[in-house]
Design a protein around this nucleic acid. Structure first.
Length: 434
RNA sequence: CGGGGUGUAGCUCAGUAUGGUUAGAGUACUUGGUUUGGGACCAAGGGGCCGAAGGUUCGAGUCCUUUCACCCCGACCA
């Protein structure tokens, strides 16, 4: 993409309401803009990142044997009345009426709809197990949306549901999804932890959360560095005790509770996390309520054993930036960067600079490298600041050193600026991208 | 949903206690010139139903009423 043709409205000042780095930089960098409270538009850069994350989620789930579907976003209220969640989820569900005064809900999650989809279509134990997922818009009418993409009302989430003939098989799938989620977050280049969690409004027994570690995280995690143990603090302490923790008088709580939690006995640490994934063992809660049955080996009707699996896809965009940024802007990981390479022409009026940039641009495009050519007439400093704000992993600087036969590669993460002979730059950048 | 706050240029904000020329600054944008390796400088421009609706007044960005939106603290939550 040529910068001169791209719609990337970067701005110098962040909106006054943005407090988090991800919120500020995603807006300043022209990735997203605010449509209303908790509502965001994805502009070209944001859309590219969103699609990249979505693609990785899909690839790994498909590889694990899941089936992608797409459910309607608007659902009849009756669906929610049958499960009882019309009551229990309350105002979190946004209700609307059509011209006939029929009531509908903008789906906040889809257990009911997915059970209805499978009910009477999967009727035998021979058809099980089955794992269905979708990556689709959700709407939760949060009492107080905030923090940009981290807590919007409308968001993109992957929600998956598996159906089984036995609890053992459901647990097998649960473990498979845990492993799959680890692959996904590892590919995204994130530092994350899996912790024991509360099941909350979704219901169910065993549940694990996946947290991206970041100081701005809303959740507090108790983590053992020696073994795999980790838990959301909500599972260990009640609210009063959590308040006590915030006042740093937690030594006694630690003595009384935490010390008994970790089998290996090593020291436990508190860390802040952003929840980006949550997997639940549901059992038969929804299949029973909605009378979704299959026939077992003896011809007896049984409700499906179920599990459910969520990933906050749009939230992940913000999580990547919360974990990877500096004072100048975004630092994308290799799998999330909207463009891997930015070719910066310091002075577009200099024919030698432009010619080399054009040549490199065409060669990299031919290799299917995601490359931006900054061919705008801005000054060098402006372009550098812009490149840092957007967060291209590599910027090839073609500027005044070209008269000495040199160009530079600026590494966004390390901030190193290394000079390369102009004849070696193509091979060098291809090497870096491997 | 409780408590607090803010709506004035694309963005960040002055101006509102005490009503009174043609509503301001910075930034962004346009044009010209000078610059040219870290968000340049000079000059000249364009851009506002002062959130909306009523009201008081000779006169309202400013006062009154209603309403909408947004933000912050809490409670709640992927």
């Amino acid at each position: 993409m040529r910068r001169s043709r791209a719609f990337i409205p970067t701005i110098k000042e962040a909106p006054s309401d943005a407090t988090l780095a991800s919120h500020k930089f995603l807006i300043r960098g022209g990735f997203i803009n605010t449509q209303g409270a908790g509502l965001y538009n994805f502009m070209p850069l944001g859309k590219i990142v969103l699609e990249k994350i979505r693609a990785i989620v899909k690839e790994e789930l498909d590889a694990a044997g899941c089936n992608e579907v797409q459910l309607s976003f608007v659902t009849p209220i009756g669906l929610w009345e049958r499960s009882g969640r019309s009551e229990t989820m309350g105002k979190e569900m946004l209700r609307i009426k059509d011209r006939h005064e029929n009531e509908f809900v903008l789906s906040p999650t889809n257990e009911e709809a997915m059970v209805e989809l499978v009910k009477n279509r999967v009727t035998s134990y021979k058809d099980l197990p089955i794992n269905l997922y979708q990556i689709n818009t959700k709407f939760r009418d949060e009492a107080r949306p905030r923090y940009g993409l981290l807590r919007g009302r409308e968001f993109l989430m992957k929600d998956g549901y598996s159906f089984h003939s036995s609890q053992e098989d459901m647990i097998r799938e649960f473990d498979l999804m845990e492993a799959t989620y680890k692959k996904i977050f590892t590919r995204l280049g994130l530092d994350f932890r899996v912790v024991a969690a509360d099941s909350g409004a979704i219901g169910g027994e065993g549940s694990k959360e996946f947290h991206v570690l970041a100081n701005s995280g809303e959740d507090t995690l108790v983590i053992c560095e020696a073994c795999d143990y980790g838990a959301n603090i909500e599972t260990i302490f009640d609210n009063e005790e959590v308040d006590a923790l915030n006042e740093k008088s937690y030594e006694e709580l630690k003595e009384s509770k935490i010390s008994k939690l970790c089998a290996c006995g090593a020291e436990l640490h508190f860390k802040k996390g952003i929840e980006v994934g949550h997997i639940f063992q549901l059992g038969t809660k929804y299949s029973s309520a909605l009378e979704a049955h299959f026939s077992d080996e003896n011809g007896r009707a049984k409700p499906f054993e179920m599990a459910t699996f969520g990933i906050g896809v749009s939230r992940l965009i913000a999580a990547v930036i919360e974990q990877n940024h500096d004072e100048n802007g975004c630092i994308w990981t290799k799998e999330t960067a909207p463009y891997m390479v930015n070719i910066l022409v310091s002075n577009v009026k200099d024919e030698a600079q432009s010619a080399l940039a054009e040549e490199l641009y065409e060669r990299l495009k031919a290799l299917h490298v995601e490359v931006m050519l900054d061919d705008t007439k801005e000054r060098f400093g402006f372009k550098m600041k812009d490149a840092e704000l957007i967060g291209f992993p590599y910027t090839i600087i073609i500027g005044k050193e070209l008269q000495n036969g040199l160009v530079q590669i600026y590494d966004r993460k390390t901030k190193e600026n290394s000079s390369i002979n102009r004849d070696e730059i193509y091979e060098k950048i291809v090497e870096l991208l491997k």
